[in-house]
């Protein structure tokens, strides 16, 4: 940042190359990703608000006859997902040192942990006594966890695409690794949403 003061005059003059353009223009992609995540968080806020309204408005919640949710698998899943955020951050730390193989290692582990989460959720769906249409609580359970699971799936795909692109050593470097950062911030977002969802649906 120190050196950029020198170039301020050039920035003003080179309108064609600095204000917008193809090479070397200021990178606004992360700003866009954050805006997108603000929007996406509103979708979850909508779901959570609906869930909380049902919870407070209905005389009995969950409705009578709803079987208790098993907690073991979701707790393991929560531990896996939360720790995967820290694992993933190691990947970003690695690429900041220009260590592409480190990035691939940590992101590979993260993708595997995401897959474990999805398998765990599949196991839970498969063995649950709840059906999608059993009652309002069951519908909420599947809608919320399903929509979140969709986000985890997208996250795993993002991580896999980072791994695919990092086959060539030059694709990501310490100075240029937007794809890594975008995948990571998305993954943290999905993680935070899960913690809220877990508290709302399983614990409350």
């Amino acid at each position: 940042m120190q050196s950029s003061a020198l170039d301020e005059s050039k920035v003003t003059l080179n309108y064609h190359h600095e204000a917008a353009g193809h090479h070397g223009h200021p990178d606004h992609r992360m700003f866009g990703v954050i805006l997108f995540l603000i929007g996406d968080s509103m979708t979850f806020l909508g779901f959570f608000a609906a869930f909380l309204i049902y919870r407070t408005m209905m005389p009995v919640w969950p409705p009578e006859g709803t079987p208790e949710l098993e907690l073991l698998v979701p707790i393991i899943n929560t531990i896996v997902l939360v720790s995967s955020s820290f694992v993933m951050h190691q990947g970003q730390t690695a690429i900041k040192r220009n260590d592409v193989s480190g990035l691939r290692l940590w992101f590979g582990i993260t993708a595997a942990m995401g897959a474990v989460f999805l398998l765990g959720q599949g196991y839970e769906y498969f063995h649950s006594e709840l059906g999608l249409t059993t009652n309002l609580f069951a519908s909420c359970f599947y809608a919320l966890t399903g929509f979140h699971g969709l986000h985890v799936t997208v996250g795993v795909l993002l991580i896999l695409s980072v791994l695919w692109r990092s086959r060539s050593k030059e694709h990501y470097s310490s100075g240029s690794h937007f794809g890594v950062e975008a995948a990571e911030i998305y993954w943290h977002f999905v993680d935070v949403i899960w913690v809220i969802l877990f508290i709302l649906v399983y614990l409350l």
Binding site: M1, S3, S4, L6, D7, K10, V11, N14, H16, H17, E18, G21, H23, G24, H25, P26, D27, G175
Partner: peptide, 18 residues
Amino acid sequence: MSTSAEKIVTSTHDGQKA
């Protein structure tokens, strides 16, 4: 954030306007 080196590179494009 583009470094100052990148800015110099881009400014050389100025001469060859498309």
